[in-house]
Amino acid sequence: MSLWQHPRWMAGLCAAAVLVCAAAPAVFLTAVDAAVLGRSETVKDAYTAPTPSGEDYYVLRQLTARQEKQSNLAPVPETEEDPNRPALKMYIGAQNSLENMTNGYDYQETVNTTLQNLADGGVIAPQWAAWATDWGDATQAYVGYDGAYYPLDVPYYATDSLGFVTLKRFALEQESLYTAFSMTMDSRTGVVTQLWISAPRQGDEPPPTPGEEALLAFADRAGLENLGDWAKPENSPYPNALYSRNGQALITALVSPYEYSGWTNAAGTVTSQRWFLSLSLQPFSEEDLPQLVP
């Protein structure tokens, strides 16, 4: 009997063959599962997540480079130039005096926003941000010894050769010039690495000092929270500090009284009792961490 003469039988046989082929993988896998069920084997090379390090973070690489270049600064001997010798890459630090800095009127909003963000994020108390951004009015100005006129209702800035920008606000105390605020930040990322603020001292009760949560918030704003091991360093001279062994980085905060001393031709020596806040992020190997001296 020819199957071609019985198309219904032929269709049925084809359908049965298709079903058998489709079921074969499932039957095979079921048999394999049954054979290995209840057995376990140790993976030879189990995956472990890599431990983050300071090299993984741009701002820490930049801070380390600046620290190394600052420590390697030395006078260059005066020798005859060799045209075949590659040019030396010198580190040029940011200038700190008012006369050597640039009027930063365009950066005033940057300063205001950055400090407000630090306050809103719990890094510093709002009053510190208010003291730092107390720009006064346009009538306040300093006249240098050379007769140059410097308005004091704007920040001044300087940039080093690695791209760190230092922004400052200057003010007058009985006509004597002093630094009221200083902030260093990375120009590429906007990460604040150093902050210094001066405030009037009207009693013995110090303004708020950033605690552990504030320092963790500072690390978070710098993009370093994923280092994951921030902890208070042992035997540290800083009452408020966090250290990351993974990142080889130290965050410190300090509020302390100080006496400002200046000079004017009219009044002579000028003094003022003030507070300062210092907040910084620095690269530190564990063996080089500051230690209390017994």
Rank of each mutant, 00 (worst) to 15 (best):
P77V: 11
G144E: 08
W135A: 10
M185V: 02
D160A: 07
T189Q: 05
T102H: 09
E109I: 13
E80S: 02
E81W: 06
T48Y: 12
Y149Q: 11
V76G: 01
W128P: 13
P155G: 12
R66T: 07
V76S: 08
D153Y: 03
A74T: 09
L88H: 02
K89V: 15
S97P: 05
M185K: 05
N100E: 14
P86T: 07
M101A: 00
Y149N: 07
L98V: 03
L98M: 01
T113L: 00
Q70M: 12
G93F: 02
M90E: 10
V143K: 05
G136K: 05
N84T: 15
V123G: 04
G104A: 14
A171P: 03
A141T: 06
N117Q: 07
V76H: 02
Q70T: 10
Q70V: 13
V165H: 12
E109W: 11
S97E: 12
P151C: 01
E81K: 13
E175T: 11
T133M: 14
Y58K: 12
N96H: 06
E81V: 08
T113G: 04
G190I: 02
Y142K: 06
D153I: 03
A125I: 08
A74R: 11
Y57M: 04
A94Q: 12
A94H: 13
P151D: 06
S187Y: 08
S187H: 10
E109Y: 04
R85E: 15
D137T: 03
L177T: 00
A158Y: 05
K69I: 14
L63K: 10
Q174F: 08
M90L: 14
G190M: 03
T64C: 08
T159Q: 13
S97A: 06
M90W: 05
G147N: 12
D160P: 11
D106R: 05
A158P: 05
E175Q: 14
V111A: 06
L60C: 05
Y149I: 07
D160L: 14
Y149R: 14
S97M: 06
Q62V: 11
Y145Q: 10
F181W: 01
G136V: 13
E81Q: 09
A49S: 10
V111P: 01
L152A: 01
A49C: 07
P155T: 06
N112M: 03
D153C: 02
G163A: 02
E55T: 09
S187C: 10
M101R: 12
K168W: 00
W131A: 07
G136Q: 04
T139K: 06
E99R: 04
G104Q: 03
T102N: 01
A141E: 02
Y47E: 06
Q70W: 00
L73I: 05
A65W: 07
V123L: 11
D120W: 00
L162P: 04
A65I: 01
T114A: 14
R61C: 07
N117C: 03
F181N: 08
P126M: 00
T113V: 14
A130F: 00
Y150E: 07
A74E: 08
L73Q: 09
V59S: 08
N96M: 03
D137C: 02
A141Q: 15
